[in-house]
C-alpha cells in the first residue's frame, strides 16, 4: 500500500473540507477501497475516515418513504423491519451480495461507490483504461464472462457488480449528496452511476469532495417485489445477470412496473420504455417476450458473455411470471 495521510472527520462539513482535493478519498467500511489499495490499483494521498459521522439512522420521510443514512451498514439495512416489510427487493438484493462479514462493514453510501470493475482492472500487469486512462483495454477480445452487454464503449466493457443499487434503481430511490460550502443536491439513483464512454475512470457523478449522506426511498408502491440473481456459485459471487422488480397488479392488469438489471452494464441498467410497455397490459408470455425483445434490442455480446443475452431473457420472464403470479413455468 502506498503511504497516505489519515484524518478522522467529526461531521459532514469537516469531512467534505478534508476530502476536497485530488487523490483524497473518504473511507467508511473500506471493504472495496482497501482491497484496491493493497494492489495499488487505487492509491489516495489522503483518507478521510467518516465513520464517526451521524449518518447511521433509517428514518421515515414525510411522504411515506424511508431515508437511509449513508453509514447504515448493509446488514442493518437488510434486517430493518420496515425495509423487510415494505421494500423486500432491497433486503433480498443486499442479502444476495457479498458475505456476512462484508455486509457488516459495507455501508449504504460506500456500496454505491464501490468500483465498477473487471478482472483486468485488478490485474496491474494489464492495460486498463479505467485504472490508467489511455492505456487500453485488455478485456475487449479477452475473457469476458462477467462483462457488459449494454452501454459498453470501445474503452471499457466492465460491469457494476453491486446488488443493492439494482434494487434501489427499481425502487426509484434518490441519492442525497453534500458538497463544498454546504451545497447539497439530490440525484436519482438511476442517474448516479455513469456509462463508461471515453471516461471509464469515472464510475459515478460525484465531484471532488462530494459526500453521499443518505439514500431516500419513495413510499412503497404496494407492488410485488422480487430480486433474482443468477451466478456461477450459490453464494458469495457476482451476478452474471440479476433482475429487480416492483410489479403492481390491478383488475388482472399490470398497474405498475419498475425493472432494473444487474451484471449487464457499467451501471445498474434501467430502461424506462420497458416499464412503460408493461404498464396497463394483461400479463402473458407474449407480452413478456415483447418486453424481452425491447430490453435486448440493443444487447451486444463480447464473445465470452454472449450467453447473458438468452440468460437475461429467461430470467426476466421468470421474474415477470412470478411477480404477476402466473406461476413459474409455462
Amino acid at each position: 500500500m502506498k503511504p497516505f495521510t489519515y484524518a478522522r472527520a467529526a461531521d459532514t462539513p469537516e469531512a467534505v473540507r478534508e476530502a476536497s482535493g485530488p487523490s483524497h478519498d473518504f473511507i467508511a467500511g473500506g471493504t472495496n477501497l482497501l482491497d484496491l489499495m493493497k494492489l495499488e490499483v487505487m492509491a489516495p494521498d489522503k483518507l478521510v475516515d467518516i465513520n464517526r459521522l451521524d449518518l447511521k439512522q433509517i428514518s421515515e420521510t414525510e411522504d411515506g418513504g424511508l431515508r437511509i443514512g449513508a453509514l447504515v451498514t448493509n446488514s442493518d439495512c437488510a434486517a430493518d423491519d420496515r425495509i423487510r416489510r415494505d421494500y423486500p427487493v432491497l433486503s433480498r438484493a443486499i442479502l444476495a451480495g457479498a458475505s456476512g462479514q462484508l455486509r457488516n462493514k459495507a455501508t449504504t453510501g460506500g456500496n454505491l461507490c464501490q468500483r465498477t470493475r473487471c478482472y483486468y482492472f485488478y490485474d496491474t500487469a494489464m492495460p486498463c483504461n479505467k485504472r490508467e486512462p489511455g492505456s487500453g483495454c485488455q478485456a475487449i477480445g479477452g475473457a469476458t464472462r462477467l462483462h457488459a452487454i449494454f452501454g459498453a464503449s470501445d474503452q471499457c466493457i466492465a460491469t457494476y457488480p453491486g446488488d443493492m443499487a439494482v434494487a434501489m434503481s427499481a425502487l426509484d430511490a434518490s441519492v442525497e449528496i453534500e458538497g463544498k460550502d454546504g451545497a447539497s443536491r439530490t440525484v436519482p439513483v438511476r442517474d448516479f452511476h455513469r456509462l463508461p464512454g471515453d471516461r471509464p475512470d469515472k464510475d459515478n457523478v460525484l465531484e471532488d469532495g462530494e459526500l453521499i449522506t443518505a439514500v431516500t426511498l419513495p413510499a412503497p408502491t404496494g407492488g410485488r417485489q422480487s430480486y433474482r440473481k443468477v451466478r456461477d456459485r450459490a453464494s458469495y459471487a457476482f451476478a452474471l445477470v440479476s433482475v429487480a422488480a416492483d410489479i403492481g397488479m390491478e383488475d388482472g392488469k399490470i398497474s405498475h412496473a419498475a425493472l432494473a438489471f444487474g451484471g449487464v452494464a457499467h451501471k445498474p441498467w434501467h430502461k424506462p420504455e420497458l416499464d412503460a410497455l408493461l404498464t396497463g397490459k394483461e400479463p402473458s408470455d407474449a407480452l413478456f417476450a415483447e418486453a424481452a425483445d425491447l430490453l435486448l434490442a440493443e444487447a451486444q455480446g463480447q464473445g465470452g458473455n454472449n450467453f447473458k443475452i438468452l440468460l437475461l431473457r429467461r430470467t426476466l420472464r421468470a421474474v415477470l411470471r412470478e411477480a404477476t403470479q402466473m406461476g413459474e413455468t409455462a
Binding site: 473511507i27 473500506g30 471493504t31 446488514s75 456476512g100 462479514q101 462484508l102 462493514k105
Partner: peptide, 15 residues
C-alpha cells in the same frame, strides 16, 4: 459484536 474481515479494515479506524 459484529463479525468482520480484519484484513479489510485499518486498525486506526477502530479507536
Amino acid at each position: 459484536g459484529r463479525r468482520i474481515n480484519s484484513c479489510l479494515t485499518l486498525a486506526c479506524m477502530h479507536d
